[in-house]
């Protein structure tokens, strides 16, 4: 069997062998629906779509995804099992990818469990299901981006708490990168091409464009590169920090 899939299976099973997984899924589902109905006014809008539901995903992920990512490597380093894992006949890349994919699949499972809301809008009205599918894809890609960042941060520390906080801060920065407030500040200090660069890093811009129902290659490349870059960074950080 491929080492990546062996590691993937072990990791995914380990999420479900502790109550953490169930707590996470319950909180995710409760918050996702509470935001959509209470803050987003899913019913009151009188439109058969899931915009209010997906609009809150970036903010939901901001706190929940780092909580999944924080244990990826910090825990391995803390218990010393990283020494066991990396002396097994697997490459470091296989280990990094296997663990990341398991975390991603876990968030994917939580996301998939929101399906009742999809059924609800289909029962109540006649939504554009194509848009909903691309929104789910966009949401999953965004979660992958958060997770990859969390993976790299988690590799840098033994403490899951520190990993969590730093990941939240970085992700918060990337979420807000497209916000007029941030861009206003950036304009005062930076040349225009850098401001455009900052704006292009915004998760929300890319997520919103996918969740409009158009899968643009540029948005896919953005999330693909982001995940690739931070997984590579994870591997580099593991190498640097091995001796500690």
């Amino acid at each position: 069997m491929n080492p990546v899939s062996v590691i993937f299976k072990r990791e995914l099973a380990s999420y479900f062998s502790t109550p953490v997984a169930y707590v996470f899924i319950v909180i995710f589902l409760v918050l996702a629906n509470a935001f959509a109905f209470q803050l987003g006014g899913l019913f009151e809008r009188g439109q058969a779509d899931l915009r209010p539901f997906f609009d809150f995903h970036p903010w939901l992920y901001l706190f929940l995804v780092p909580a999944v990512a924080m244990r990826l490597w910090a825990e391995e380093r803390n218990t010393g099992s990283i020494e066991l894992l990396l002396t097994l006949p697997v490459t470091q890349t296989q280990a990094v990818v296997g663990k990341f994919l398991a975390a991603w699949a876990f968030v994917g499972i939580a996301l998939a469990l929101t399906f009742p809301i999809w059924i609800t809008v289909n029962y109540l009205g006649d939504p554009d299901n194509g848009v909903i599918v691309t929104s789910y894809i966009g949401s999953l890609l965004m979660a992958g981006g958060f997770l990859a960042i969390g993976s790299a941060v988690s590799a840098a520390t033994r403490s899951q708490v520190i990993a969590f906080i730093i990941t939240v801060v970085i992700c918060f920065g990337l979420l807000l990168a497209g916000h007029p407030l941030v861009l206003g500040f950036a304009k005062m200090a930076l040349p225009q091409w850098l401001v455009d660069g900052v704006a292009a890093l915004s998760f929300i811009t890319h997520f919103t464009s996918i969740s409009k129902g158009v899968i643009d290659l540029r948005d896919l490349i953005f999330f693909g590169l982001l995940i690739g870059f931070f997984l590579y960074a994870t591997s580099v950080v593991i190498d640097l920090k091995k001796a500690d």
Binding site: V6, I7, R10, S17, G80, S81, L84, T87, L88, P89
Partner: peptide
């Protein structure tokens, strides 16, 4: 690595797994 068996200091393992699951994982990998 394939021809080495290694016991790190303090014998770290994945605590939430049972020896059954842990040894199957090692065997597969």
């Amino acid at each position: 690595k394939r021809c080495i068996g290694y016991l790190p200091e303090g014998a770290p393992a994945y605590g939430e797994m049972t020896p059954a699951g842990f040894l199957r994982f090692i065997a597969d990998i």
